[in-house]
Design a binder for these strands. Structure first.
Lengths: 244, 244
DNA sequence: ACCTGAACACCGTTCAAGT
DNA sequence: ACCTGAACACCGTTCAAGT
């Protein structure tokens, strides 16, 4: 685990429609800081899931009244914005090495996937949030660096950078099916997979011939391999375009 | 818009860990039906968004007490399961035409994308839900039919079917950034895009040289084109694997 | 300047009681 | 069998009041 990228300081101009107030990092010897609140909230997110992430719960964690949080983070949405950017900061992107750009892209994708899986519910939180905090901006710049330094034309580089994220998120969503913090009473991941393929195999094969025929392939499907397959299709296809 | 696939009747065995009770479609001349509740809830989802989709709200829509819903759908999670499967049923999958399998895969992807964009918040609702209702099962079988009839080996077909969904969802999430039903006070989609690229262009170019350099490409990026690019990379790469 | 307590308008769900 | 009303334990947010 790399330490959180500290370079992108908070001295940037505020992104548009930002919902968290800009507060100096620490004034006196107060109990609360934006950072401390984000820490606590992220812990709740990881341990209890998004559904149990309430202002009151986070406040209880910090031995503070719920209303106290509002002075620092403005609103729950503001807090979620901060959490999102914090998590983005956890994935590190290598300095460009033009000869290895295809492999570097894959490394970024793998890193992104693994931090998503480390904070499974961040994916639900991220939907509808345009990533434009300091860490998000830094991340985008560094991925673009890999592509542009390798000679990928700008328009294609922009598309590739955005598609890469989409791909990783899409696959991660599929993988958290049944996993993550279940909405209610779902069984644990592997048991769910077993139940699922049992169910598929039990379906009437005259109505669903193909599904029943491949039920065992579904059961034995490996998420890592599938992800690598997609990365391969994407990156090698991209390289082909970049050449022409 | 095709009518909802009616073939997959409710005479299937219940999927594992189903959270909605199985109720006969309509007993007497009661006020409520599972179907009527799903209709109402889907309307609320489309018009007001997931955050405003509450049992009480749906019940108000139907001139019924909130508690009345529970007899029919068991829980809110059960209702969300039913909505999810209903929406899946809206995308239609063509009968296999082996000579055109690559184009058919793309058609399915485009159809899935457009029904997601027609029910933008369904994507948030879908996370963590394993699609295994009658419509989901039918959908999977028909996509597998296209692949297997074309001679794609089973293991690859299963991977391709799952990756195709992941890809579409991933791209759709990216597109609903700022759109959908905003968490709170975000600006409308195109205004948000303008604000975003203005912000990117305003960043210090010594710290984010690549991002600033391509800010205009980001502003003029076309979601449809990007989607088609990804489809092309995916499907043609897949065809290549299938041949070897 | 930073934080508390109480209040407002909501939630999902249960459960006795009605018909 | 189907539905209501009231209740329980929660929410996010605001706001006067304290220090």
């Amino acid at each position: 685990m790399p330490e959180r990228a500290a370079a992108s300081g908070s001295d940037l101009p505020p992104p548009p429609w930002s919902r968290a107030p800009q507060r100096p990092p620490r004034r006196r010897r107060d109990l609360l800081t934006q950072e401390a609140i984000v820490d606590a909230a992220l812990a709740v997110l990881d341990e209890d899931g998004l559904d149990l992430l309430s202002m009151r719960h986070v406040a209880r964690t910090l031995n503070v009244s719920a209303a106290a949080l509002y002075w620092h983070i403005g609103s729950k949405d503001g807090l979620l914005d901060l959490i999102f950017d914090r998590v983005i900061g956890e994935v590190d992107v290598p300095d460009p090495d033009p000869g290895r750009w295809q492999e570097q892209l894959k490394e970024v994708a793998r890193g992104t996937r693994s931090t998503i899986l480390a904070h499974r519910d961040v994916i639900r939180l991220s939907i509808g949030r345009i990533p434009m905090g300091p860490h998000a901006v830094r991340h985008a710049d560094r991925v673009l660096a890999i592509l542009r330094t390798a000679g990928v034309p700008d328009a294609l580089a922009v598309a590739a950078q955005q598609l890469l994220i989409s791909i990783v998120i899409g696959v991660a969503i599929d993988e958290t099916g049944g996993g993550g913090h279940p909405p209610a009473d779902q069984p644990p991941p592997h048991e769910a997979a077993a139940l699922a393929s049992d169910y598929l195999a039990s379906l009437p094969s005259d109505r669903f011939p193909h599904l029943v025929a491949v039920a065992d392939h579904i059961a034995s499907a490996n998420a890592d391999e599938r992800f690598e397959l997609l990365l391969d299709l994407f990156v090698s296809g991209l390289a082909q375009r970049a050449r022409s």
